[in-house]
Nucleic acid binder design. Structure first.
Lengths: 205, 205
DNA sequence: GTCTATAGCCAGATAGAC
DNA sequence: GTCTATCTGGCTATAGAC
């Protein structure tokens, strides 16, 4: 029993390593350019072994997405229990976290266009469950922030939600980092500003 | 002489048709998923014929990008000569125009990650020239709007520029359109609001 | 310059030994 | 479950007839 459990543990660890590599490569190259061979080589196993764990490239990408959603959920729960901040500050904290993940090269950004991938994701219950859970948490904060007058009341909550998701893989961050003109902290601060206060800046116009 | 000119005209028209098809397919599927066969089939010619006009898939994509940059420049020039609006309103007009193009399914959004494509673009003088020209025009308006206090003065102009480019292919637009809950006009108005006034809305907080 | 046909390559997925 | 070796299909790009 203990031996079986140990073996399972080793297998789980290997699977984690695979997903972590896929996660990083997805962030670096994107789904279409990343190859399964690269992932296997990065982990240090044969491609056929990888396919014992994941039946397709799409499922591998889904696992990477689930992983980052899990990390997001963990962070959200931490915020929920340890801070007494207002909803708007919690939303900003989440946006800040996603940008840090992106700067660390750990934010897999899947193309919204690839139909095979989207189809696979839409039938992946685990993925959809996590996505829904994150959306619910953020949605609650969004409506709370609107009630408090800290978020534009005229904006449908879904628009704010989609915007936050989109900013999590905003290409502006990569462009600024590539330019080498700003520190990571400055980049995050500026993008937080443009996200919540707009290009016009605080004070409206 | 007239006959030669006519033939050249026909050729030019065919080339335009190719680029227009590529443009649409790039907007719909993205560079990696789009195939040259599809473009040729869409135009109604053989793939080999297409390769007489463009020596590679990357060059074809570059031509599509140049096309949309030309359209943008034409619009910018129109704004420059026909309106007496402030720089901030001209920037908003450009952002509005890019969103209309995107809603029309005519905004080719190339992945920032594909290295082969980026390498080809970076050596394409025509593309770089157009990109620089658009950047210069917008950059002038950005600094003017900052002087007038209509754009956040603390923001480096390049950040505002990158943000405008990024919003031109913001996936939020596609998500909202796919949801079917809003009219095109509403979508554009909301995204213009979040872009310039932020999620918090006009009035800062 | 346009076509049909095909070369050449590469990536996703699998077979079968261990 | 892991490996090596291979299959399979699709895509870019080209050859060669007309």
């Amino acid at each position: 029993m203990a031996k079986v459990s140990f073996r399972e543990h080793v297998l789980q660890a290997r699977e984690d390593a695979i997903v972590a590599s896929a996660n990083r490569l997805l962030a670096e190259k994107g789904f279409d350019v990343m190859t399964v061979d690269e992932v296997a080589a990065d982990v240090g196993i044969a491609k056929a072994s990888l396919y014992k764990h994941f039946t397709s490239k799409e499922e591998l990408a889904a696992a990477a997405m689930i992983r980052v959603l899990d990390r997001a959920l963990a962070f959200i729960v931490t915020l929920d229990t340890t801070t007494r901040a207002g909803a708007i500050d919690q939303l900003k904290a989440v946006a800040c976290w996603t940008m840090q993940v992106q700067l660390a090269g750990e934010m897999p950004s899947l193309p919204a266009q690839n139909s095979a991938l989207r189809a696979a994701l839409m039938t992946n219950k685990l993925y959809l469950d996590r996505l829904m859970e994150v959306s619910d948490k953020l949605g609650a904060w969004i409506t709370a922030a609107q009630k408090a007058g800290h978020l534009n009341r005229k904006l449908p909550p879904e628009v704010a939600l989609y915007t936050l998701f989109a900013r999590a893989c905003d290409p502006v961050l990569g462009l600024l980092k590539a330019s080498g003109q700003h520190s990571d902290e400055d980049i995050i601060e500026m993008l937080l500003s443009t996200c919540f206060d707009g290009l016009s800046g605080p004070g409206g116009r």
